[in-house]
Write a protein that binds this DNA or RNA. Structure first.
Length: 428
DNA sequence: AGCACA
């Protein structure tokens, strides 16, 4: 028996059905508007909005077939077409006899939006751009992004349904403004539905997920992608292997960074055993060895993305090295072993490279220094632009203070009293 | 402006 298989997709005249197919609807036509439209002819018992590729079609189902017939007949002979918000709506009998009432989660209003970014370069749209776009409608609590078969998607959490709805109405089907995208990035449009979620779980700040309500949330080691060094562990499920040795690369090195500067910066978090500096790809990198992994983790989270000098100069990017023990052959201006009993090292040279004051006080270690604050943030410039964690409010230090016990004694050489550098001490 | 479901 093949009763329906040879039916054409549609005809100009469908056999009557209590289900009507509507097209040319305005964007985001609501169920209420559809009920309103059908009300003069009978009782609308079910609707389905946002149908079709453009989501500008819908179905309404009347209680009774005659009601549907009345509506079709009326508009067939009316001089005024059916309208929603002034837009002409075209009606016909549906080729089905009832609306399958799967109200998908996409139709249930909620405070979390499911956003699909469409376009060749959809993946080039950063979470920061999304944040910017959606923040226009209210405070964005959290964003997570992920890849599904549907493509590049994001969940955007607002505080309430109203805010989410205003964002959805305004942005669904729209393109991300050009000026927010890099030159070579093609058009990216947004398709938005409601998500069934009400509260997203964000374990780490990363390039894939953000919790804007919690600046103290740990930063995923993989969060910083500007140097393309790390790309694992996005959900906080998997992190790059931690190490007691950090690899620091210095970006925008407008001013010299010496071994002593690095030592000062990194010693704020605990004993630095060894440092080796070297040039790589035209930039300066350094390996900094702590005695344990924990200290390195604290230092990395505190320093990553921050600048040694105000003004965005000498920005640090830090990853874990695969080394565990550096082999320092000779102590010189590029490498040093602070654990050596009698290191033949000179006193630290004058650190006169500071572009502003000519003294090293400008940069002082993070971790709760209070003695010489010259800037409201305690000297560490907020990471700029991409990778910004959006923290900094409240005057709290977003990263942990290192244990003061281990940060106050240096190697046997003992030539650099840390107090001079405003290293972390007990808070007063 | 032309028929949904995940």
């Amino acid at each position: 028996m093949s009763s329906v298989s040879s039916q054409p997709q549609f005809r100009y005249t469908q056999p009557p059905s209590k289900v009507l197919h509507l097209r040319n609807l305005p964007w985001e036509c609501t169920e209420e508007e559809l009920i309103e439209l059908g009300k003069p002819f009978g009782t609308v018992v079910n609707t389905k909005c946002n149908v079709g590729a453009n989501r500008n079609q819908a179905f309404i189902e009347f209680e009774d077939l005659n009601q549907a017939i009345q509506m079709i007949s009326y508009y067939a002979s009316s001089s005024e077409p059916a309208q929603v918000r002034g837009k002409t709506v075209y009606l016909q009998y549906s080729n089905r006899q009832e609306i399958v009432n799967n109200k998908t989660t996409a139709d249930v209003v909620g405070n979390v939006l499911l956003v699909t970014v469409e376009g060749e370069d959809a993946r080039m749209v950063s979470i920061d751009v999304l944040h910017l776009v959606f923040s226009a409608f209210g405070f964005v609590h959290k964003i997570t992004t992920f890849e599904k078969t549907a493509g590049y998607q994001a969940l955007v959490q607002f505080s309430d349904e109203e805010t989410a709805t205003s964002a959805k109405n305004a942005l669904d089907g729209r393109s991300i403004p050009r000026y927010l995208l890099a030159e070579q990035v093609g058009q990216c449009s947004l398709k938005i539905t409601y998500s069934a979620h009400t509260d997203l779980t964000v374990k780490f700040q990363s390039h894939r997920s953000r919790d804007y309500t919690n600046p103290y949330l740990p930063i995923a080691p993989s969060a910083i992608d500007s140097t393309g060094q790390v790309a694992v562990g996005v959900d906080g499920k998997k992190m790059e292997p931690e190490s007691n040795v950090l690899l620091a690369s210095i970006e925008n090195m407008q001013y010299a960074v010496t071994l002593d500067v690095l030592h000062m910066v990194f010693a704020a978090f605990g004993d630095v055993q060894k440092i080796a500096m070297f040039d790589k790809n035209g930039g300066l990198q350094a390996l900094i060895q702590y005695k344990d992994v924990q200290t390195a983790v604290v230092a990395k989270e505190a320093l990553e993305g921050h600048c040694i000098y105000d003004g965005g100069f000498c920005k640090l990017h830090i990853t874990y090295s695969r080394h565990t023990d550096l082999s320092i052959k000779v102590n010189n201006d590029r490498s040093r072993d602070y654990t050596m009993p009698n290191p033949p090292v000179p006193m630290p040279q004058q650190l006169g490279q500071n572009p502003y004051t000519g003294n090293p006080q400008q940069y002082h270690a993070a971790g709760g220094s209070h003695q010489q604050q010259q800037s409201p943030q305690g000297g560490w410039v907020q990471p700029g632009g991409q990778g910004s964690m959006g923290m900094g409010g409240g005057g709290h230090n977003p990263y942990m203070a290192p244990p003061s016990s281990s940060s106050m004694h240096y190697g046997p050489g003992g030539h650099m009293p840390p107090q001079h550098y405003g290293g972390p001490g007990p808070m007063h």
